[in-house]
Design a binder for these strands. Structure first.
Lengths: 223, 223
DNA sequence: GTCTATAGGAGGATAGAC
DNA sequence: GTCTATCCTCCTATAGAC
């Protein structure tokens, strides 16, 4: 790499993205105005339109710069697992680790804003904004497809639509846990032993238990 | 009851609440303007301020009118369970049924807007608006406290903070599943067998599996 | 590339007539 | 109780100077 480091401090574009990410978490996408973003980033209002065009494009770029890398890492992990298995079965717990592990890692990265972003992402899965949902779906399509396929292969005795639903439930538990930890505090009062290092094994244990639950364990009383 | 039925059609106040509920789901709290609400309700703009004062108060009332009843039913179910057990242990599956059952029932009520509301509620758990979070926490405080206590008693061998976390995960899986079913469609393409009558047993089976998962089943590799 | 200035419109809220 | 009319604030986006 012979390109000289011209700027060691974040440039205008990055400063805008960082500020937007933070404010989107604090106030939501709609309630965050361009003025709030540029004020926090220390740049001029017009800089946003220069670099990103519209507010929607800015939102898209906030997600894209992190999601592309996140899903790349997930797929790399899955590739590694499949190569190591050499056509044999992969343990479901390994698959869950490959999918949720990178997300939880990012969620615990408080230095580079990863935890901020994951809070935002967790909330945005249920975002009503059609534009946002559209590109989120596109960004995730490949990873979700590959991981669902891996789970189908790892659990051939479980009906596929059941796996699909359970994957959905697992995404929900994880998103919600990441996005709304303070909601738990509100509900349950002080939460002194919220040891963040224990969060991952706790969640993984729960997810695996749900994924492998007996199919008809809970009788349908409403039938 | 000797009060005559003066109005059989919804009055202005109810029409505003119904319209607001629907629009909040479609566009989110912030993106829904007072003008959109009054236009859909077929009432004048000033009627909202007359009946509710501010937009925040209107939002609060949209939630309150449904949540009070929902949590009342949950607590009634729990009372019934505890009375029937007569001091003995209650099965965790019964407790989950008492808590999540009424919510799922409301979520499948498409006639009176219950499903609309539950979609809204599921999304709002991660709402950034501080005002909204505050009264949601107050509205839920009693029910959450009672049900956590019941789970503690039902699972005395499980550490309490573990139950607390798992309750949090269960709320997440449920909220997300209710709020974002169409997200699943986006991810997984066509979803032909999304039989809504099978949703409840599927979710309950998953929740119970997660709640009863072995504690250290998933090893903490990052330790 | 980044700024100032402003256009052009939508927002919540209210005063006062009916 | 419900309406009309209006105030003032805030928004996104852009045009054009530097």
């Amino acid at each position: 790499m012979k390109a000289p480091v011209d700027r060691v401090l974040p440039d205008t574009r990055s400063r805008i993205l960082d500020a937007a990410e933070l404010l989107f978490v604090e106030h939501g996408l709609d309630a965050t105005s361009m003025r709030m973003i540029t004020a926090r980033a220390g740049v001029n209002l017009a800089a946003v339109n220069y670099h990103f065009g519209t507010k929607d494009s800015l939102i898209q770029e906030v997600f894209r710069r992190r999601l592309t890398e996140l899903n790349r890492r997930r797929l790399a992990e899955l590739d590694r697992l499949e190569a190591a298995a050499g056509g044999g079965r992969i343990k479901p717990s390994r698959i869950l680790e490959a999918f949720f592990g990178p997300a939880l890692e990012l969620a615990s990265d408080t230095e580079n804003g990863g935890s901020t972003f994951m809070q935002l992402l967790g909330r945005t899965y249920t975002e009503p904004n059609a534009f946002v949902r559209q590109f989120l779906a596109e960004e995730f399509a490949e990873a979700i497809g590959r991981f669902l396929g891996a789970l189908y292969a790892a659990l051939p005795e479980v009906p596929r639509e059941e796996i699909l639903w359970r994957f959905h439930f697992m995404m929900g538990a994880t998103s919600y846990a990441i996005a709304g930890t303070d909601a738990l505090q509100l509900f349950a009062g002080r939460f002194d032993d919220a040891d963040p290092t224990r969060f991952k094994p706790r969640l993984m244990s729960f997810l695996l238990g749900g994924l492998r639950a007996p199919l008809a364990e809970y009788p349908d009383e409403a039938r």
